[in-house]
Design a protein around this nucleic acid. Structure first.
Lengths: 106, 106
DNA sequence: ATCGTTGCTATCTTTTTAGTAGCGAGGGGC
DNA sequence: GCCCCTCGCTACTAAAAAGATAGCAACGAT
């Protein structure tokens, strides 16, 4: 059951891209993996250690999904964000700054 | 174990706000709930039906978390994004358009 | 008082995620 | 060739989260 725009996902059978995206990003570690790839390619094991020892089972599952969604690709030096992945990260990276301001209000 | 900036979350004990945020948003339905609140307050049950019958158990858990994170608040007409929640949604809403372009590349 | 709707809890099942061990492939040194 | 190390990754099992369903107490309108 691969995740793919146009296909139903959990919680939405519309197949609308945003729903597919929200479903993918809502799986644990997905957002984090994209985040950790922000400064360049990482090997599987390095990525694993950056994500505080996420289990290889999950990491590999996520990487498979992210590759099938064309957000991550394998390079000679390890896993890296694809062009699309970079674009997505660009949309997400303002969250870093925002989250710090947000934290102050708590 | 409430989610809160400054405190360890699963996968990061740094307490950095971005990690707390990524952890929160990476829980299933969280992103979707924020998304569904984009056009105004909704009652618990309406929100539930908008999220294609998400179980009340999970919905309530998420709403509790989102309230404790100051992203959602209760109003006379139901659950609504707080000021912070609106700000977050603003950061996320470009994803809708982006996701459509992205979907074309698949 | 009855009815419908609300937010929500209790209970149980299923799915997902976590944790750990270790394999086969490849590279380097010798 | 052989040893040793690191690599990506799979297998297996345990724990945690999410899903599904039933239903209760509180409120408002009739």
């Amino acid at each position: 059951m691969p995740l793919k725009p146009g296909k139903a996902v959990r919680g939405s059978n519309s197949g609308r891209p945003i729903m597919v995206l929200l479903d993918a990003l809502g799986q644990r570690w997905t957002l984090r993996i994209i985040w950790e790839l922000r400064d360049g390619p990482h090997t599987f094991r390095l990525l694993q250690s950056r994500c505080e020892a996420v289990s290889p089972t999950v990491l590999n599952t996520r990487l498979k999904t992210l590759r099938s969604l064309n957000l991550v690709e394998t390079t000679s030096t390890g896993y890296a964000l694809s062009q699309q992945g970079e674009a997505l990260l660009e949309k997400l990276s303002p969250l870093n700054k925002w989250s710090e301001d947000w934290a102050k209000t708590l």
